[in-house]
Simulated scan of single mutants.
Amino acid sequence: MLYHYGCGMFMVTVTYTASVDVVDRFRPAHGDWLKQLISQRLLLVAGRQIPLTGGVYLASEMSTEDLSRLLATDPYVLNDVATHSVVEFTPLMVAAGLEDLKGQ
């Protein structure tokens, strides 16, 4: 369950629950899902963990309910090969050029 404590962004970690060989079967659909969400600015960043045990996303400000619904549509989750863990945070300091993320 996600709890919302105010205006913030979300860091989402993805943990594979199946072998990479099994996860790879769903990687194209997962990639399309990520591209769509990034084009809509629902996700701001997405990448792989090193070593390859999952991934990490930065999600823009939204309700926890909307984030839960969004993450439930991940092809990895739909095919039971990964889980998500969510941390909400408020960006207080940002690098030059990312000021629009501050205090979302």
Rank of each mutant, 00 (worst) to 15 (best):
G8K: 07
E88F: 01
L2D: 09
F10W: 13
T53R: 14
L101A: 08
Q49E: 08
A59D: 01
T83N: 04
V77I: 08
A46N: 04
G8D: 11
V81F: 01
T73L: 02
V23P: 01
L71H: 03
L34D: 05
K102W: 06
V22A: 12
F10Q: 01
G55R: 01
D74E: 08
L98C: 10
R27F: 10
T13D: 07
Q36R: 15
G47I: 08
L44T: 05
L37T: 06
W33I: 03
T64G: 10
R41P: 02
T83I: 15
G103L: 12
T53A: 09
R69S: 07
V77Y: 11
L58V: 15
P91M: 15
K35Y: 07
Y3W: 09
P75S: 03
S85V: 05
G8M: 13
S39H: 07
V87G: 11
V94H: 04
S85C: 08
H4M: 11
Y57S: 02
M93W: 12
E61R: 11
T13K: 05
D24Y: 08
S63L: 08
Q49S: 12
M11C: 11
Q40L: 13
Y3H: 13
G103F: 02
L2S: 07
T83K: 06
M9D: 11
R27E: 13
F26E: 04
L71S: 02
L58G: 09
A46G: 10
L37A: 11
E65H: 13
H4A: 11
H84F: 08
L70R: 00
T83A: 07
V56C: 15
L52Q: 08
L42E: 14
C7R: 10
M11K: 12
Y57A: 06
T13R: 04
T13F: 01
A96P: 03
Q40A: 14
V20K: 15
R27L: 14
T64R: 03
M9K: 15
Y76C: 04
D21I: 06
G47S: 06
S68N: 13
Q36W: 08
P28K: 02
G97I: 05
L78Y: 04
P28L: 11
Q49C: 12
T90C: 15
Q49P: 01
G31K: 15
V81A: 04
N79Y: 10
